[in-house]
Write a protein that binds this DNA or RNA. Structure first.
Length: 676
RNA sequence: GGCGAGGUAGCUCAGCUGGUUAGAGCGCAUGAUUCAUAAUCAUGAGGUCGCCGGAUCAUCCCCGGCUCUCGCUACCA
């Protein structure tokens, strides 16, 4: 490990529109916490920074839905998140928030510095504006009919029904969610960070100087850099956020991704007046723990910001994890498909470390992984209870029974004793190597090997037999066994802090330092306390209860999905009769090259033969389409799609699973028959 | 479609720059054992290393093509 003077460890700021779930923990907070605890044990100078990300549009929407202020929303979730982290044992030196005063000052100042230095470019674009509410509308504030699936309540950035990502200008009959009135286009100007200007620098920094980053991170960055970086807007028209600190920027705030990473800096400032040396001294090792969705922000955008500012260091590493699934399905806040930390803490009191263990042992380090309750139970029962807890219990109970809880005097070590004892130091080394390479699951497995070693040592030496014939030998054996438990109490501290603490209490030790691992930690004659169980078995009933909850949620989601969409607003007959729908027959079909969904169709509409482009290629093959009679909206204004002019729209029904079905005449009929 | 990551024992994953019989944990089977929360210890069974082709004396690891999963991105009138 390169010897840095100090360490600055950040973990991604959780977004304060919901509580924290196991995906966050496995991907970010547990690895970060393990790493930090390890550094502290090594007596390194380290700061562990966290906080809530509290700006951005989704929070304002949530506030509006619940009829409260954005501040109410972030207060609520910030408190839930903060206290659940505390109870769980994520050992932040500070857990701050981006609505804090110091953050407003820091972020403004940061922006101002870049602004004064001419690091931004200003651009004017057209955006939807709500004349009644007198404000510009973020994409999320606009709803309308999805041009793809007809869902009436699609958002300006995405239709949640069909998953299509949209531009606000794509929506049919756009409506402002603020006033309900149709918005108008109005020009507005914003500041952009020209990432392209820093591209060469970033390319060299990541691709040449940081080849040792995790392959998923390195690959993702390379992909972005190869595509070429574009200027990115750093401001938005919104009333929730940090005001752009520039003359004439009324009603504009910093875009949330710009202010959020600066939150790491402001939190450090809030923590210590010495903050600058952690951010600006080359001898600081800065590490961002994040999930894979954050790679571009932490490896490209934030470094570009820091580099543009000029006085800051860049991260030494950004160990991003993949995603964790739950029982085979993606974790989703909106579908309530998650194990929430604050609920877990209530359902499994005192079992914080069991979750830490399971999530670390199965962390999505190289690819997406699956969390199952069954696996959780197995890991607890057959690893924590059977291997770790059991060994500790054996060693302590034997000592209690034979020597009244006093560490006995060891005789001379024989070869086997030496081999066993020396193994501790080698396990320490393996754990270090794994941790320093951010391979936490491997590190944990290696640490568990010390407990395995203990069990094997007892099985091989059989003190319960020897006690009848050779008490001196038993003293040596138990001395060594106890030394192993004491070493475990330190070695396990980063991974299972609460367990390590109770183990130290049992052993009656309070000094613990990483570098002492591998030595005789308990002096002869030392009194240990009564043995208590470190872990208890988790019964099927507790697991079944969790599984039942998930089954219930799944059923609820299904019910929501299979409910037909509500009726659209009423129209009159004239509205309807403006639509010219005809029967037609597909003559030719051909997949549009270089697209996934697009099919180019030649259709006989009875009026003429025309070209229609339709997004059906995932549902039908080009071969099965010709000859099929269908319904066509013929007077829809033509639109160029992928360079092909589409003159009409094929009518399709979409079922709940997203499957498309042609709307066809019951019997074959003439092309051009009017549908009315 | 473009890009990135992944596809290795029933499950979850290791396999560094190609070199004799491909590894671990859990699960499973058999045996040993009783100090311990029926926990532990030993042994064993299980793999055409996604598919096809190529280069090489030799490849899970290199090259080409295909396929599946996840993510980013384009597209959906």
């Amino acid at each position: 490990m390169k010897n840095y003077k100090r360490y600055l460890i950040t973990s991604a700021l959780p977004y304060a529109n919901g509580p924290v779930h196991i995906g966050h923990l496995a991907g970010v907070y547990i690895p970060a916490d393990i790493y930090v605890r390890y550094l502290r044990l090594k007596k390194r100078d380290v700061l562990f920074i966290g906080g809530s990300d509290e700006h951005g549009v989704p929070i304002t929407i949530k506030a509006r839905q619940e009829g409260v202020s954005p501040q109410d929303i972030v207060d609520k979730y910030h408190n839930i998140i903060k206290s659940s982290f505390e109870k769980f044992g994520i050992s932040f030196d500070i857990y701050s928030r981006t609505t804090s005063k110091i953050h407003y000052e820091t972020a403004s100042e940061f922006f101002k510095t870049l602004y004064d230095r001419g690091e931004f470019i200003e651009k004017t674009t057209d955006q939807y504006y709500d004349e009644e509410a007198k404000q510009f509308l973020a994409d999320r504030y606009i709803t309308g009919t999805c041009p793809h699936c007809g869902n009436e309540s699609a958002y300006g950035d995405q239709c949640e029904k069909c998953g299509t990502s949209l531009n606000a200008t794509d929506l049919i009959n756009p409506k402002s969610t603020l006033s309900g009135t149709p918005p108008v286009l109005r020009s507005t100007s914003h500041w952009y960070l020209p990432l392209d200007k820093h591209e060469a620098y970033l390319r060299n920094w990541i691709l040449e100087e940081n080849k040792d980053w995790k392959t998923n991170v390195y690959g993702q960055c390379k992909s972005w850099l190869d595509q070429g970086l574009q200027p990115r807007a750093v401001s938005r028209d919104l009333d929730w956020g940090i005001p752009v600190p520039v003359e004439g920027a009324k009603g504009k705030v910093l875009y949330v991704w710009f202010d959020a990473p600066i939150g790491y800096i402001s939190a450090t400032k809030e923590l210590t007046p010495d903050w600058a040396k952690y951010w600006k001294d080359k001898e600081t090792c800065m590490i961002h723990f994040i999930g894979k969705d954050n790679i571009v922000f932490h490896c490209i955008i934030f470094p570009a910001m820091l580099h543009a500012e000029g006085s800051y260091i860049l991260p030494t590493n950004v160990p991003a994890n993949e995603f964790l699934n739950l029982e085979g399905d993606k974790i989703s806040t909106s579908r309530n498909w998650a194990v929430w930390l604050h609920e877990y803490l209530e359902d499994f009191p005192g079992k914080e470390d069991v979750l830490r263990y399971t999530l670390c042992a199965n962390a999505p380090e190289t690819k997406d992984n699956d969390f199952t309750w069954k696996d959780f139970q197995t890991r607890n029962n057959s690893e924590l209870v059977a291997i770790f807890g059991n060994f500790v219990n054996r060693a302590l109970v034997l000592t209690q029974n034979y020597f009244g809880g006093i560490v006995p005097q060891a005789g001379e070590f024989n070869d086997f004793d030496n081999v066993t004892f020396n193994e501790i130091a080698s396990i320490k080394k393996n754990v270090e190597e794994s941790l320093e390479a951010f391979r936490f699951r491997e590190a944990l497995k290696e640490a568990m090997n010390l407990a395995r070693l203990g069990n094997k040592y007892l099985a091989d030496t059989e003190p319960w037999k020897l006690i009848k014939t050779d008490e001196g030998r038993v003293k040596t054996i138990l001395n060594i066994s106890l030394q192993i438990t004491a070493n475990l109490a330190i070695l396990m501290e980063p991974f299972l802090p609460k367990t390590a603490e109770s183990l130290r209490k049992m052993l009656n030790i309070n000094q613990f330092e990483w570098e002492t691992i591998g030595s005789l930690l308990l002096p002869v004659g030392h009194k240990i306390n009564q043995a208590e169980l470190l872990f208890e078995k988790i019964e099927d009933s507790a697991i079944d209860q969790q599984l039942e909850r998930l089954t219930r949620i799944k059923a609820e989601n299904e019910r929501k999905n299979t409910k037909a969409a509500p009726q659209k607003e009423p129209i009159n007959f004239d509205n309807f009769s403006t639509m010219d729908i005809r029967t037609g027959t597909i003559l030719e079909a051909e997949k549009v090259p270089k697209t996934t969904k697009l099919m180019k169709l030649k259709v006989d509409t009875g009026i003429d033969v025309r070209t229609i482009v339709s997004g059906i290629a995932e549902h039908f093959t080009a071969e099965e389409l010709p000859g099929k009679q269908i319904s066509v909206l013929v007077n829809l204004e033509p639109r160029k799609i992928k360079g092909i002019e589409s003159q009409g729209m094929i009518l399709l029904a979409e079922d709940f699973s997203g499957k498309l079905i042609f709307v066809v005449p019951e019997n074959k009929t003439d092309n051009g028959a009017l549908v009315k």
